[in-house]
Amino acid sequence: MLYSLCFLLFMIGLYCVLVKKNMIKIVVGILLMEYAVNLFLVMLGWRKVADGAVAPIAAGGDLLDKAGTVSQLFVSRAVDPLPQALVLTSIVIGLGSLALMVAICIRTYEKYGTFDITRIRRLKG
């Protein structure tokens, strides 16, 4: 059911994109959608283990056995690392598109003198 909360957050972001008139608020709405998806991806890696799951990092300690390879205990308790890699990638992509979006907003403000999209309407038809 937590997943549907993620979807709710996603929808709040979508609502923000569709309804708000301010360019910056639209950008915030897109970011909300992005974070909802990231949260969803991280939650996909969740797993229930009796003594508690561990982060998927084999940094030493009892998680490595004598031969220096990953122990069975670690494998049985670590959470799924793949969604975390996905989230990292999507954060990087989000950073790139955020920078571009903010740059476009600033440039538009320079040209039009406003962030209100109802007043930025030169293209019609």
Binding site: L95, A99, V102, A103, I106, R107
Partner: peptide, 17 residues
């Protein structure tokens, strides 16, 4: 840097990767 100096003539295409 580019965003902090948006009045100078720099293009907004930075930051794509």
């Amino acid at each position: 840097l580019v965003l902090s100096a948006f009045r100078s003539e720099s293009d907004p295409t930075e930051g794509q990767e």
